[in-house]
Design a binder for these strands. Structure first.
Length: 891
RNA sequence: AGGCACGUAGCUCAGUGGGAGAGCGCUACCUUGACGCGGUAGAGGCCGACGGUUCGAAACCGUCCGUGCCUACCA
């Protein structure tokens, strides 16, 4: 990082790693719990410890980093807590796959050895995603990095479990749950993903035992018939009147099962007769409870047919389906097969089809917890942004079923419950008990199940701050300020944090929840490795730089709309990074030897200076407003526009001559203000583009000091807002654009300087143009600029002209003016104007409008109308002249 | 089935009742001492359709069409 002039190209790779290390070593990410500054805290949605940074993380963490860096610049004591999630099933799967490569299963090596392998794995690979977050520029307080299986967090988990158990909110019971035969564990309902599958509806004939006919049932899962213990019909169904209470013969099996009547059965669906398999279907299980039916389990935990399946025992559930169908057909029981698509539950971790299963599991009664969580959002204690997600939140919270929290895997927080082998007493406690409190036996065995991963992540906002101890961190930083997440874990995670936070901290875990978009590919599809449409953020950072990636994600982060991202769009923002770099190059070249200061004078003079300073104040205000309201796209857009199209395109172009010119005073003012504005822009941009802004900041010394991370966010200074300068600048720009426009349309070569005549009768305009003579001449490439009173000056004939701000602007085109093309150009312009004019005229002749519209709107419309009318008149006169000249030329 | 979004320039999309906008792409011209990852100018729109509210609608309301997503116990 040598001083002096900037290299021609921005070398982001070197810059990024250098400054990240510098920030970390300087302790800028560290939060001080004893600070007197107001707190701002965020906890990271902990990525899975098995994870690789994907584009969704990149967005999520970029937005959090923007908020954190912004608040630091605003003077807050900012804590961003990082960490990873042990991700029970996901991580266990990864290590099991590794074992499988050696031909082993976890059962071969046993629980302890297996857990050792997982910890080893974590030690080796767990840091990968952390380093990737650093690469992204995340300004987390790494001294507070947490892992959900850390000792402290595990302690919190145990305490929460014991407390909920003691208050009766955790219980153990035998209930229907969703089971993944691949992961070999129970799942919570939310962990099951419904997916439309094209299957078939099989119509199967169940003969009546009486011999008088048969009932035809319809099913998508014929293999479960082996466990049928009834057939149900709707009591209102005339087709089946009088059948309830009779017995039917279960095909193949030969068992006699009853026909029952229940209003649950839909008459319109299938045949209106439903086979009932209580052991393998949620609804059938309900029927069993109501009608006291037998439960016959024919599929086991591995998805294999049980002994109860008779001849089919030992077959895989899907192989069994095929075989059953063959056998049914052979026996003449299969009446009909029709195509049928329906939703089938899949495991969210391994995507295998889940199996409803009756099982002894641990549950949380969520109703009482959910009520408080609903109330907190209704009362505004936690605000969900955008608000539309609040509806989904309420809807979900109001329809919660008890949460199955036990998992039959090994990697996770082992449930702190012990069973007495003597008397079967259950002891739930923080520590392993020595003996059974009931029978004093010392033969106790700990529950082998572990807790759902989301149980521990639900505690994340306070467990990471040291709970259950009363720490200074909790005191200072809880409740946290904002939680940033995608909607897909709103229920998994946010809802659980709300419930747990309210229960154990008696306060909401965060004041605001910002729900951002999902990143999709350019065609709007979900990115997935199997589809091959993933955009790898790491690769993007390699190719275009971290700042470009972050800016692209931010610019697309519109509330309530998913992001369609393509590589070209990231590449596009690399151009913006390049633009900043080059603006800085220009500036730094001209700051050499300049002693400063880079400050705004008490009373800035010079139109361009006043204008850019005024615009800067508005941009600073817009920027802050955008970030305060999570309008990330607006934040990015405002700065993009300001830096490129105002600071570079106009301001720097205008002050360049001051840099090169002889007027020392003008040179000083230009350097001073140009540097001041650049410095402000850098700070405004720093939250989204931390690296290049720090790099330029450092190179701008002594006009900057320290690190940009120690700077203050520019306040919008009302005294510098200068509407007069803005208006005048607009007029000057309009004149320049008008000349350029004519040059372009009349095909005047850019290198060729032209003579321009500006005519007005307003003193203010004449004075303004006179003052800005040099700027107009430079930017419009004018050799002789004539500024004169319209009433006293003949209009040039050999010229193309237009009207801006009531001024007539002529570009002298002696001998080269083509009267015909000038006529065409004028007609085209007149066409547009006349259309506008007729619209405003119509409005102004509408009595309703004049009566009901607000005065200021009417006034605005009147002004516009007058302006248009005058312009049209002048252009029409011009057109007449051109026509005249055309004729002259022809004759 | 229900719910929620979204239909604006070729593409991707901003747009918070009174001027239809941006980026990319396209066309023309330009090695003007920061940048060709650039400059200047230009073309390109019945704002999905039809109604309604309003002095005034791309925006608000309704219906329809199209596209996504989420939820649900029709086996």
């Amino acid at each position: 990082m040598s001083e002096g002039a900037l290299a021609k190209g921005y070398e982001f790779a070197e810059v990024e790693s250098h400054w990240y290390r510098f920030w970390e070593e300087s302790g800028f990410f560290h939060a001080d719990q004893t600070s007197s500054k107001p707190p701002y805290s965020v906890v990271i949605p902990p990525p899975n410890v098995t994870g690789q940074l994907h584009i969704g993380h990149a967005l999520n963490d970029t937005l959090q980093d923007i908020l954190c860096r912004y608040k630091r610049l605003k003077g807050f004591e900012v804590l961003w807590v990082p960490g990873t999630d042990h991700a029970g099933i996901a991580t266990q799967n990864v290590v099991e796959r590794q074992l499988a490569a050696d031909g082993l299963t976890r059962y071969d090596i046993g629980r302890e050895a297996f857990l050792e392998r997982v910890w080893e794995w974590r030690a080796k690979y767990g840091g990968i995603i952390i380093n990737q977050l650093k690469r992204l520029g995340a300004s987390c307080d790494w001294s507070r990095e947490r892992f959900t299986m850390d000792e402290g967090l595990s302690q919190a988990v145990r305490q929460v479990f014991v407390s909920l158990y003691d208050s009766g909110l955790i219980y153990r019971g035998r209930r229907m749950i969703n089971w993944c035969p691949r992961c070999m564990t129970a799942l919570a309902n939310i962990e099951v993903e419904g997916e439309e599958l094209g299957g078939a509806l099989y119509h199967i004939r169940y003969p009546l035992v009486s011999g008088k006919g048969a009932l035809v049932v319809a099913t998508t899962r014929p293999e479960t018939m082996l466990g049928d213990t009834a057939v149900a019909v709707n009591p209102q169904d005339n087709r089946y009147k009088g059948l309830a209470g009779q017995m039917v013969l279960l095909p193949i099996v030969g068992r006699h099962i009853p026909v029952i009547a229940d209003t649950y059965v839909e008459r319109e669906f299938g045949t209106g007769a439903l086979k009932v398999t209580p052991a393998h279907d949620f609804n059938d299980f309900d029927l069993h409870t109501r009608h006291d039916l037998d439960v016959i389990q024919v599929i086991d935990e591995r998805g294999i047919m049980t002994e109860r399946a008779g001849a089919y025992a030992g077959m895989d559930r899907f192989a069994c389906r095929k075989q059953i169908l063959k056998d049914l057909e052979k026996g003449g029981w299969l009446v009909k097969t029709e195509p049928h698509t329906h939703r089938v539950g899949h495991c969210y971790r391994c995507h295998n089809i889940v199996e409803p299963m009756l099982s002894l599991q641990w549950f949380v009664s969520v109703k009482p917890l959910a009520e408080k969580a609903i109330e907190a959002v209704k009362e505004g204690k936690t605000r969900i942004v955008p608000a539309k997600w609040a509806n989904d939140y309420f809807n979900w919270m109001e329809n919660l079923e008890d949460w199955c929290i036990s998992r039959q895997i090994w990697w996770g927080h082992r449930i702190p419950a012990w069973y007495c082998r003597q008397c079967n007493e259950i002891v739930v406690a923080m520590q392993a008990p020595d003996r059974c409190p009931k029978c004093s036996s010392d033969s106790l065995e700990q529950e082998s199940d572990v807790l759902d991963t989301w149980f521990s992540s639900g505690l994340w906002p306070f467990s990471t701050l040291g709970w259950p101890d009363k720490t200074a961190e909790l005191e200072k930083f809880y409740p946290t300020s904002a939680l940033v997440t995608a909607f897909d874990i709103l229920f998994f995670w946010v809802a659980r944090m709300m419930m747990m936070g309210l229960r154990f901290m008696e306060q909401v875990p965060f004041h605001e929840v910002y729900v951002h978009a999902l990143v999709r590919d350019a065609d709007g599809h979900k990115m997935s490795k199997s589809k091959g449409n993933v955009i790898d953020p790491l690769l993007m950072m390699d190719k275009y730089g971290t700042d470009a990636l972050r800016f692209a994600l931010t610019a697309f982060a519109v509330q309530g709309r998913d992001i369609k991202l393509s590589e070209e769009r990231i590449e596009g923002y690399k151009h913006f990074v390049n633009k900043i770099w080059n603006a800085a190059r220009l500036l730094l070249m001209n700051l050499e030897g300049f002693e400063g200061p880079a400050e705004v004078p008490e009373k800035p003079t010079g139109l361009a200076h006043r204008w850019i300073l005024s615009r800067l104040q508005r941009v600073a205000a817009d920027t802050a407003d955008s970030l305060d309201n999570y309008y990330f796209n607006q934040y990015a857009q405002v700065l993009y526009q300001f830096l490129w199209h105002e600071y570079c395109d106009w301001y720097l172009e205008i002050v360049k001559p001051d840099f090169y010119g002889q007027d020392a005073e003008a040179g000083r003012a230009a350097r001073s203000i140009a540097a001041f504005v650049m410095r402000s822009i850098l700070v405004l941009l720093h939250p989204v583009m931390p690296f290049i802004t720090e790099e330029i900041w450092q190179r701008m010394k002594p006009f900057t000091s320290g690190s940009i991370m120690q700077a203050s966010f520019p306040e919008s200074r009302g005294a510098l807002i200068d509407p007069e300068a803005e208006e005048q600048m607009e007029t000057v720009m309009a004149v320049i654009v008008a000349v350029r426009n004519i040059r372009g349309e009349m095909n005047v070569a850019p290198a060729l300087k032209v003579d321009v005549v500006c005519l007005s009768d307003r003193d203010a305009h004449l004075e303004l143009l006179e003052r800005e003579r040099r700027t107009i001449s430079d930017l419009a490439r004018v050799s002789n600029l004539t500024i004169a009173r319209a009433s006293e000056t003949p209009k040039p004939g050999q010229a193309a002209g237009t009207v801006v701000a009531n001024m007539e602007v002529f570009v002298i085109l002696k001998d080269i003016l083509d009267f015909e093309s000038e006529s065409v150009r004028l007609k085209k312009e007149l066409g547009k104007l006349e259309k506008e004019f007729s619209m405003t005229s119509r409005k102004l002749s509408n009595d309703d409008f004049l009566q009901k519209a607000p005065d200021e709107v009417i006034e605005k419309e009147r002004e516009k109308n007058a302006r248009l009318s005058e312009k049209i008149e002048k252009l029409n006169r011009r057109l007449e002249i051109m026509k005249g000249l055309q004729k002259n030329k022809a004759t």
